[in-house]
């Protein structure tokens, strides 16, 4: 990977983190409503994965979607504006934190019904198959989504109909507050693909370079063979499930242990070890992020609320 590309990935990861840290502050001030789920700790998964796609490949994810939106090229301004419910947001303020999309960038949304977007992902791939192209649909979801029927119907259909879907399970060890082993018959989620005769793999989701390589390989496989693939990324969210999480289900030491494996820290070290940049170079990136985040907040705050007429728009196309 070229140096500029590596540094851009670092920029994206820091940007996701800082946008969310600012978002959390605004949430606590009551400026952001509804549910908000932070991606902090999991940035390497989406960043490595989406770096490996081609622009024509579609991305769809669950409600922990701010990072995915950023990786797909949605600006921090639009993300922040959506969080504040402004008309300049990704979804004109009608979607909120859990529903960010920009189909022009092939980001088909955050989806908030657990597992609900998986059959839709099969449908994207079905649409592409019907159109005769070899686009790949990248469908991201958490470990919790693999216990619900949608997951199984979607995987079965994808395998039976040879649909080009890369299923990416972000195993962050908990479905809300319930540990994987308390909710899933198998703790290695990738095993569930075996039942469908589906190729699968596992990757360290805290290391962006490892995610990138695994995703490249998996996307190539899906595109060339017209077969789905399930990739499990082991990861961890450093913050609560959502902003209102008392975190009674895990110990502070466990969180601390994972935080020592901070994906940004790991990549920071990698870049310095590989001499892709210097400490000063990384500081400059972080300073650029600060400017972008500040501008995003200013933009979002200055943006207008949706007009009341928007209430009745976009329900139907005709």
């Amino acid at each position: 990977m070229k140096k500029e590309v590596l540094l851009d990935l670092y920029y994206q990861m820091v940007l996701i983190r800082r946008v969310e840290e600012r978002g959390a502050e605004l949430y606590q001030q009551g400026r952001i409503g509804g549910f908000m789920h932070l991606y902090i700790g999991q940035e390497a998964v989406s960043t490595g994965l989406i770096a490996a796609r081609e622009p024509r490949d579609r991305v769809i994810t669950a409600y922990r979607d701010h990072g995915v939106a950023t990786n797909c090229g949605i600006s921090a301004k639009e993300v922040m504006a959506e969080l504040l419910g402004k008309v300049t947001g990704t979804s004109k303020g009608k979607g909120g934190s859990m529903h960010m999309a920009d189909t022009s960038k092939n980001m088909w949304g955050g989806h908030a019904i657990v597992g609900g977007h998986l059959p839709i992902a099969s449908g994207f791939a079905l649409g592409d198959q019907y159109a005769g192209n070899d686009n790949v649909t990248l469908c991201m979801f958490g470990d919790g989504a693999t216990n619900i029927g949608y997951f199984h119907e979607a995987l079965n259909l994808a395998k039976t109909w040879n649909l080009r879907v890369l299923w990416i399970c972000e195993n962050n060890q908990y479905g809300m507050g319930t540990a994987v082993e308390r909710a899933s018959a198998v703790t290695e989620i990738r095993q569930k693909a075996e039942g469908y005769g589906m190729k699968n793999g596992q990757v360290d989701g805290m290391d962006v370079m490892k995610v990138y390589s695994a995703a490249r390989e998996a996307i190539d496989f899906v595109r060339k063979t017209s077969q789905p693939y399930l990739l499990e990324a082991d990861t961890y969210r450093f913050r609560g499930h959502s902003m209102g999480d008392p975190e009674r289900y895990r110990k502070a030491e466990e969180v601390k242990q994972w935080q020592e494996n901070d994906p940004i820290g790991i990549f920071n070290k990698y870049l310095l070890d590989k001499k892709a940049t210097t400490r000063k170079g990384l500081d400059e990136i972080e300073a650029r992020v600060e400017i972008e985040v500040n501008q995003a907040v200013e933009f979002a705050e200055a943006s207008p609320e949706p007009a009341l007429e928007e209430l009745f728009k976009d329900i139907y196309a005709e």
Partner: peptide, 22 residues
């Protein structure tokens, strides 16, 4: 297309295909 007996897959996938232009 004959589908599995799986209504979530049928309607879910049809929604996806419709969203991308079919």
């Amino acid at each position: 297309k004959d589908t599995p007996i799986a209504e979530n897959a049928i309607i879910g996938a049809a929604i996806g295909a419709a969203m991308v232009g079919q």
